[in-house]
Nucleic acid binder design. Sequence first.
RNA 1: AGAGUAAGCCGGUCUAUCGCGCCGCAAGGUGAGGAAAGUCCGGGCAGCACAGAGCACUAUCGCGGUUAACGGCCGUCAGGCAGCAAUGUUUGGUCCCUGCUACAGAGACGAGGAAGGUGAAAGUUGAAAACUGAAAGGUGAAAGGCGGACACCGAGGUGAAACGAGCAUACGAUAGGCUGCAAUUCCAAGUAAACCGAUGUUUGAGCGCUGCUCGCGUGAGUCGGAGGGUAGGAAGCGUCAGAUUAAUGAUAGACGCCAAAUGAUGUACAAAGGACAGAUGUACGAUGUACGAUUUUGGAACAGAACCCGGCUUAUAGGCUUGCUCUUUAA
RNA 2: GGUCUCUUAGUUCAAUGGAUAGAACAGGGCUCUCCUAAAGCUCAGAUUUGGGUUCGAUUCCCAAAGGGACUA
Length: 115
Amino acid sequence: MANGFPKDNKLCGQMRIAQLYKEGKRFTAWPLRVCFQETEEQTQVLVWAPKSLFKRAVKRNHLRRLMREAYRLHQDMLGEKHYLIAFNYMDKEEQSYAVVEKAICKSLKKISERA
RNA sequence: AGAGUAAGCCGGUCUAUCGCGCCGCAAGGUGAGGAAAGUCCGGGCAGCACAGAGCACUAUCGCGGUUAACGGCCGUCAGGCAGCAAUGUUUGGUCCCUGCUACAGAGACGAGGAAGGUGAAAGUUGAAAACUGAAAGGUGAAAGGCGGACACCGAGGUGAAACGAGCAUACGAUAGGCUGCAAUUCCAAGUAAACCGAUGUUUGAGCGCUGCUCGCGUGAGUCGGAGGGUAGGAAGCGUCAGAUUAAUGAUAGACGCCAAAUGAUGUACAAAGGACAGAUGUACGAUGUACGAUUUUGGAACAGAACCCGGCUUAUAGGCUUGCUCUUUAA
RNA sequence: GGUCUCUUAGUUCAAUGGAUAGAACAGGGCUCUCCUAAAGCUCAGAUUUGGGUUCGAUUCCCAAAGGGACUA
């Protein structure tokens, strides 16, 4: 079981991100909003907390790390297929790790079922 | 002991498991703060410019020191404000030239003179009879009163300020070439040397001298519209962090810190009270106060590097050290 | 990251350092009308915040907060 999260698994590039948001399927799993798309290449993930909701950089960094950590520990739930996924933090409050972990698990399960 | 004040410091530690960035073949090494923040100053660094003259513009402003530099810091002088005090805070070139000082006030920055007093010109009144003359007018006609130009003396009051000044946009001294790492250099990819309008080629557009003018140089494009393409990477970023969707985290446990509760057959002090010996002692003592082992619960701030330094400013739980001041008690 | 700029009634804008901060629209009340609109009268409402300079700050200076523009 591979629980690492190296740099190759991060989604980057303005064009590819715009394409994902344009063509990908979306759903909400509080406090997250998820956007995903199936792909032939390796799985890449984007994690994001908006500046308009969290003005302090510390809080944004913390939430991003929580989401990334939760994904890293549960990424084997996705199965054999590869996806592009974007996790957007939605809630105005800063939630604990337990809440974020639950939401990530829920959304990963949903992705593997729907795709 | 309490309260205050000034200066300085700390900003949890360790272990286990799973992970991240960078360096390295690997083993391994290394990885955020006192403010990393605001971007308010200064410097390094980079690019452009640097024949000259003049005018602007911006910043600073008692004195001395410190520094690579500063508008910072340290010491000190004077004034204002707060405090019983220790101390804190704030202001600090000049008024020669150019201007400003509302309302009120006679007058407001050139002076001019108000109530009142002294003197006093013009004018007016006194002013009619009578005489003279064709008439108009003249003579009579002076004292005194009213009047108050003007000259001298000169308060009180108004107002922040009444001739004393204060202020800056004014003057003086000093400093500053301009722009900023999205600077700048290189690589890769892509496109549109096309179209429309205005203006211009010796009757000189535009550009450069990076604010303007003179002056000098250059000499055919320049500006706007609509439209097309790209927005990746490397260096800059070394001196023990260094990315470019942007690394330093998550979980569990232990210790330490803070707050509340608990309060040991515990310790110290006070003590109603009865007991024993006896005119004062001895042990006991319900109960109260303080200190407190232990246990339980909760809490732990402000905040995250993007070229780097020196300051300033702002945010900040809790704690530590030292100096000084005041109040109370004891010696 | 850097360079600038702005904050005044609910909204859009005025106001040499000078008296009670002005105007339009919006809002409340009254008149008119059978009712509404229009019109007329009237009322309330603001200098982003905290210091300083000044006799006196919307205005000048310093700090903070919140917007906006430009720059590869």
